[in-house]
Amino acid sequence: MSSENFTNSTYEDFAEEATEKITKISVYTPLIYVAIILTALITFSKIYRKRYINKLSHTKPFFPPNIQKQVYFELAAQDPKPNDKVLKAALFRWASESIRRTIKLKECEQSITKMYQAGSIGDELFTRYNFAKKFEELEIQNIAKEVEGIKKGWAPSFFPLLQEITFNEALKRRVGAIDSLNADQAKQWGLTKEYLEKLVANRPQMKIDVKRP
C-alpha cells in the first residue's frame, strides 16, 4: 500500500514542476546559437591554416642553397646573353645537383620513415623531409621546362646524360679524396715515416711450422 502512495505522490510532484518550469524562448535563440558556433569554428580554422602555412614557409630547407641554380638564373638574366654553351653547362650543373639531392632523398626514404615510426625523430623533421621531396620533384619539372625552352625535344636525351654526369661527378669526388683520406688515416693512426720504417725493420721472421701437414 505505502509504496503505491509513494509513486503516486512523486508523479504528481513531477507534473507540478513541469507545468511550472515552461519558459518561452525566442525563435532567434537557436539561430544565434548556430551562428556563434559556426563563426567560432570558421575563425579557428582560418587562423589555424594561416599559422600552418606560415610555419611551412618558415621551415628550414633540408639542403644548403643550390648555388648552381642561382648561377644559371643569373647567367640567363644577363643582358647580352652569354654563349649558348655556357648557359647549357650551367643548366647541367644545376640539374645534376638537383638529381644528386633527389637520389639522396630517395636513398634515405626508408631510414627516415623507420626512424619516424620508432620515435627517433620529431614531427618537424618528417614534414621537412616530405617537403624537400616534393620540392625536388617540382625542381625536376622546372628543369624539364627550362630544357625544353632552350631546345625543343631535348628532354628525353637530357636526363640520361644528366645521370651520367652526376655519377661521374660522384666518382671523381671519391677518387679525388683518396689521397687526402690516406693522409688523414696515417695521421690518425700515427703512421709516421719513422714508425713505418721501424715496423719494417722489426718485422718478425716468418716461422715455418714443420708439423703442418
Binding site: 633540408f62 639522396k104 626512424m115 618537424e124 623533421l125 621537412r128 671519391r174 679524396a177 683520406l181 690518425q188
Partner: peptide, 17 residues
C-alpha cells in the same frame, strides 16, 4: 638535436675521415 644529427649524417661525405 636529433634533427641536427640527421642533417649531419645526411650531409656527411664519405670522402672525409
Amino acid at each position: 638535436t636529433s634533427t641536427m644529427f640527421v642533417e649531419k649524417i645526411l650531409n656527411y661525405k664519405p670522402t672525409t675521415l
